[in-house]
Design a protein around this nucleic acid. Structure first.
Lengths: 197, 197
DNA sequence: AGAGTAACCGAACGATCGGTCGGGACAAGA
DNA sequence: TCTTGTCCCGACCGATCGTTCGGTTACTCT
């Protein structure tokens, strides 16, 4: 057996360190020297585990995208009324976003400077499009208001959800759980801020 | 008089070019070589107009912050009930964000790698705090729901508003005006997605 | 015509970039 | 004990980074 102890780096454990630094300094603002300092090994040693800086980015955004697309495969995202499915996807997106916070954070910040970044942006657009279709269906059912333009509403909904990566810190004192945040998002998105609704 | 023609760069006109490139590639991902290509002048010529790359960033985020803090100085942001003032600030924030889109976009993306970036983040936090206080007051008045945690609601509201920089393109066909987007944001934020409210 | 200056340029600076290379330390299996 | 492979290192590579410098062009004012 080779499932013995691991006090050395694996590609996965190195990825966790790298993604943390990427999110602190930005991908372009992070040098391999920064990563080596954060990981506690030399710059050249990093290349023993991964082929380079871009592989770390690719692994990270892949993990985020897998989590998101996994939601669309869930049963509650495929059966039921459109508005019910939309609510489920909304809630689960918040939960996945929080469960895979650093990876999704990185995904949401890529600018398209390299092939990897452009691929990530494209796949992310596919996910957004599928949710947009769901919202469109719910409006057609008469379950969602139709006076606000569809594309606008979709983008504002995603804006609200995706903003979580900018402020949610799981280790903060009095931090809400993923489910609590998901509740708040669903409440605000579907019923609004105003009282007595 | 020296108010004659200007077919040459000023610090301001150069800034407009730089900010556009910064937003396309990210600040760290943009080299002075990129800027010189986009501006159509040589790399060294840029230093005739500005002291360096960081001054361009400082000028850009200053302009964005001036626009935002200007809102809080407006009369409708200082008199009236809290919920009315909040609604005004919300609407005007959307409008300013769209009017100064590239500058605010840059402001919202700084990561804190330099002194300039950290200063920008601090001033932005001050603005957010003042709006948060307004929301708190409106909840105390009973005009906004109190079952969703205050900090959570504030952040989701800002998330929705700030997400505009990620998708709003004024030159797109069928693009909404700033006022129209502001309407949609106010509608969704205060009344929610659900129909019949 | 001559002086002054704003706008610009190519070449080069030291520093840092992502990545390569040859080899050492160490544990496991024979 | 000797090999094999994992994990890591310092030294170094060419390229690119933000910035500086000396100098040229072209326009304005006298």
């Amino acid at each position: 057996m080779t499932t013995t102890r691991r006090d050395t780096y694996t590609p996965e454990s190195l990825l966790a360190v790298a993604v943390r630094v990427f999110n602190e300094r930005g991908y372009d603002g992070t040098s391999m020297e920064h990563l080596s300092k954060a990981a506690g090994i030399s710059k050249s040693s990093i290349y023993h585990h991964v082929t380079g800086k871009e592989e770390l980015l690719r692994r990270a955004v892949s993990r985020a995208l897998d989590g998101l697309f996994g939601i669309l495969a869930e049963e509650h995202a495929r059966v039921g009324t459109a508005v019910q499915r939309l609510e489920h996807v909304t809630r689960r997106t918040v939960e996945v976003l929080i469960a895979e916070l650093p990876y999704v954070t990185l995904l949401l910040r890529v600018r398209g400077n390299t092939d990897t970044e452009r691929w990530a942006m494209e796949r992310r657009r596919e996910f957004d499009q599928q949710v947009a279709d769901l919202l469109k269906e719910a409006v057609a059912d008469g379950d969602l208001r139709s006076d606000v333009e569809l594309r606008l509403a979709t983008r504002l909904l995603f804006g609200m959800i995706n903003s979580i990566v900018e402020w949610y810190r799981p280790d903060a004192r009095g931090a809400s759980s993923g489910a609590q945040v998901a509740d708040a998002v669903v409440q605000l998105a579907f019923a609004g801020l105003r009282s007595g609704s």
